[in-house]
């Protein structure tokens, strides 16, 4: 016992409660799901083979990936613009901007989804307003299609995109930019050849973070897609709660999980993971 104690740092004693809990109640069932994907309803790779046979599954995967890519591109681009503006204005203005960003970050996802429902519906505020000023004759279909899902998702993801970018922009030494200008480079040259490359770690982290979060997004697509835009997360929930087919759902979850872990691995090569989430949590 004493010999054991010498080898094991006492710190592990207070790590253990959470570690054991997460292993037993979280890792366990996740491994079980991975196992189910090759054993339910019968052993073998039958569930994965469905990908080759079923057009519906392929369509769902493609919809999911397409929506995630578009969401990521818009969120990161717009997020970059916000982060850049925040880094290049007075402290006071920056504080106001940060407050707005964090408030939007904190507002419940359900409240936001509800608001979009009120704004984007056929008789929603946006359509009514556009009709009133005579811009459109017929209401635009914002909902029950990909447009609505994209608006809701991009709106939700922008703060997540901004925070890692801010972290990486804060680390840049402003004197490098001054040097570039002194050496005769133009503003846009300095930006494209010095600033942008220096923010690459932040860009990669922000892109992957938003993509990962979009991939498993459930609430907004389910409500604003109105059943017309079926993404993987919603499909999994239907499989589990309505048709009770664990096998297919487990296979899709396994694909998603491996995708996410691969992206996390790439991300960890560019930025310390705890920095990314540390930024996201604040």
């Amino acid at each position: 016992m004493n010999a054991l104690r010498k080898h094991i740092h006492p710190g592990w004693l207070i790590i253990a409660p959470l570690l054991v809990m997460v292993m037993a109640l979280y890792l366990g069932p996740i491994l079980n799901i991975l196992w189910l994907s090759v054993t339910d309803p019968e052993p073998g790779f039958g569930n994965y083979a469905k990908l080759g046979e079923s057009d519906a599954l392929i369509r769902i995967l493609w919809t999911t990936v397409r929506i995630c890519i578009i969401t990521t591109v818009f969120s990161v681009t717009l997020g970059y613009s916000i982060a850049y503006a925040m880094m290049h204005c007075h402290q006071r203005q920056k504080n106001y901007m940060l407050t707005l960003l964090l408030v939007s970050f904190w507002i419940s996802i359900l409240v936001r989804t509800f608001s979009w429902l009120m704004l984007l519906g056929r008789r929603g505020l946006v359509n009514v307003a556009l009709e009133d000023i005579g811009l459109i004759a017929e209401p635009i279909a914002f909902m029950r299609n990909e447009l609505g899902v994209l608006i809701g998702m991009i709106h939700y993801m922008i703060p997540y995109a901004v925070l890692p970018l801010l972290v990486s922009m804060q680390a840049i030494d402003q004197r490098v930019m001054d040097a570039s200008r002194n050496l005769g480079a133009s503003g846009s040259q300095t930006f494209l050849r010095i600033y942008l490359p220096l923010t690459t770690p932040g860009l990669v982290a922000s892109t992957l973070l938003v993509f990962i979060l979009s991939l498993g997004f459930y609430v907004t697509p389910a409500v604003l897609g109105g059943g017309k835009v079926l993404m993987v997360a919603e499909y999994i929930s239907v499989q589990l709660l309505v048709t009770l087919q664990w096998g297919t759902a487990a296979m899709l979850a396994a694909l998603m999980l491996f995708g996410v872990l691969a992206m996390l691995w790439i991300m960890s090569r560019f930025m310390k993971l705890s920095t990314v989430f540390g930024g996201a949590a604040r």
Partner: peptide, 12 residues
């Protein structure tokens, strides 16, 4: 924190 919530939901 990062594993999609739908997978966590499935696990629980």
């Amino acid at each position: 924190l990062i594993i999609p919530q739908i997978i966590s939901a499935m696990a629980f």
